[in-house]
Amino acid sequence: MTAAPADLLIESPATSDGAALWRIAKESKTLDLNSSYSYLLWCRDFAGTSVVARGADGEPVGFVTGYLRPGRPRTLLVWQVAVDAAHRGCGIAARLLDGLTGRLVAERGITEVETTITPGNTASERLFTSFAERHGARLSREVLFPAGLFPGGSHDPEVLYRIGPLTESTAL
Rank of each mutant, 00 (worst) to 15 (best):
M1P: 11
A4L: 09
A6G: 01
I10M: 10
I10H: 02
T15S: 10
S16H: 08
D17Q: 06
A20E: 06
A20T: 11
L21I: 04
L21E: 01
W22G: 07
W22H: 15
W22P: 00
R23S: 10
A25R: 02
A25T: 14
K26Y: 07
E27Q: 13
S28L: 00
K29Y: 05
L33V: 15
N34F: 12
S36A: 12
S38G: 00
S38D: 07
L41N: 13
W42E: 09
W42K: 06
W42R: 09
W42V: 11
W42H: 08
F46H: 13
F46Q: 12
V51F: 14
V51Y: 13
V52G: 03
A53N: 06
G55Q: 01
G55R: 02
A56K: 11
D57F: 02
D57T: 03
G58N: 03
V61K: 00
F63Q: 02
T65S: 15
G66C: 04
L68G: 06
P70V: 06
R72Y: 14
P73R: 13
T75F: 12
L77G: 01
L77H: 11
L77F: 14
V78G: 02
A82M: 10
A82H: 08
D84W: 00
D84R: 10
A85E: 12
R88V: 00
R88W: 00
G91H: 03
I92W: 02
A93T: 00
A94L: 10
A94V: 05
A94M: 14
A94S: 14
R95L: 11
R95F: 04
L96C: 13
L97E: 01
D98C: 12
G102K: 00
A106T: 11
A106M: 06
E107Y: 05
E107A: 13
I110N: 08
I110F: 05
T111A: 13
E112R: 14
T115W: 01
T116C: 14
T116I: 13
I117H: 02
I117S: 03
P119W: 05
G120A: 02
N121W: 01
S124E: 04
T129L: 10
S130F: 01
S130V: 06
E133Y: 09
E133A: 15
H135T: 06
G136T: 06
A137E: 05
A137S: 13
R141C: 12
R141D: 05
E142L: 11
E142K: 14
P146R: 04
P146E: 00
P146G: 01
G152I: 07
G152M: 02
G152A: 08
S154W: 06
D156P: 08
D156T: 05
P157A: 12
P157D: 08
E158I: 09
L160K: 04
L160R: 12
L160Y: 04
R162S: 14
G164A: 11
G164F: 14
P165Y: 12
E168K: 15
E168P: 15
S169M: 14
A171M: 11
